[in-house]
Design a binder for these strands. Sequence first.
DNA 1: CGCATTCTGTGAAGTGTAGCACTAAGTTCC
DNA 2: GGAACTTAGTGCTACACTTCACAGAATGCG
Lengths: 211, 211
Amino acid sequence: MERLEDPPDVVIRRLPLYARSLRYLLDEGINSVSSQELGERINVTAAQIRKDLSYFGEFGKQGIGYDVEKLFNHIERILGLTQSWPVVLVGVGHLGQAIARYDGFHSQGLQIVGLFDTDPLKIGQKVADVEICAYAHMPQVIHDTNARLAIVAVPASDAQPVADILIDAGIRAILCYAPIILQTPDDVWVRYIDPVAVLHSMTYYLAREHM
Amino acid sequence: MERLEDPPDVVIRRLPLYARSLRYLLDEGINSVSSQELGERINVTAAQIRKDLSYFGEFGKQGIGYDVEKLFNHIERILGLTQSWPVVLVGVGHLGQAIARYDGFHSQGLQIVGLFDTDPLKIGQKVADVEICAYAHMPQVIHDTNARLAIVAVPASDAQPVADILIDAGIRAILCYAPIILQTPDDVWVRYIDPVAVLHSMTYYLAREHM
DNA sequence: CGCATTCTGTGAAGTGTAGCACTAAGTTCC
DNA sequence: GGAACTTAGTGCTACACTTCACAGAATGCG
């Protein structure tokens, strides 16, 4: 029986990992998988996978497991990945360029449709076939492309004003690489990528080894 | 009274955010802060900050709050950031170069002491004053520099063998940018940076708006 | 100098998530 | 075709984390 409750956010965050693992299984030509096997690949317990999926329906067969392709398609549909999502990227420094050039976005339904920077020398140039524009063009591009997703790869000092412009222009979800917590309205989703903080949390454990 | 229990990992993960926010406060010339004010800056409740800190001691003054510099130094000490940590980086593509060139690592106690790649054209070149070496040199460099931290920025297909080499050479903590879950011994810490998965978890919510 | 105010540290209560363990359903093989 | 085996879905339990709410400590002000 299908559940009535909304799936918790932790579950939503795991879905992309399930989807990716299933994609790899497909590439390997494996077309059936049990929760046990899938769990071993991504270091999650079998029970957790089954419970997570149960928020969305019943996708497996008892005694067999899951049809890889069918489950993959289901999860893509749940995540809204049957369509391609336009994304704008603000900040075309080393990191921004690396992101713009990474084809992992494009192949996974994320199309970079706008690049923005403040550097006059960069404006007008192209990276990965997309022209770099001034901040002033953000609202227009976001409107024209109907982008709802943005990646912020600017220095910490610029991130908040950039986020304000983006949100004002209609962006509803931000992936922020700047080392700062953004202040945003409740109806905007913000997630952070913060390698320095992650490394610092690991130095805690390393410093405690052999003590 | 100091607590006896080990602080949970979620707490450890928040400490770097506290430290960073305190650093910004210092830069602003603010030298006293309440848990309330600190919490508003990083979107965490005041109670959570106080409870988190209570795992490590008593750092505040009732009626006053926390001395910014003292608390900052305490957290740095807890995280083991009174020393600089040598880090090796494997994979010097666009992303690897962006990481190697980012001075946010160096200024935060993370010194990149080794760069490795398989591309013969890259080997021998320097990025940010560090020479790119072949994989074969990894054990030697890790031994010589006493590195315990590694960043993996190679394609998914190379990540597992690279991790195996690193761990074998003495690396104890890995920050993995490759879109794959690494299989590692229990005494090695692994964290992932996975922008595509993060964006995919947000498309879930965007796809459900106006429904 | 004492009362109102501010703010920490923490036991207790509340919340949310993960894992267990069982039922039921499907498969395989003899 | 039936016995042994595999595995999904799920109620329940246990645990871990967060939040509440209050006691105690420091300050300021009238």
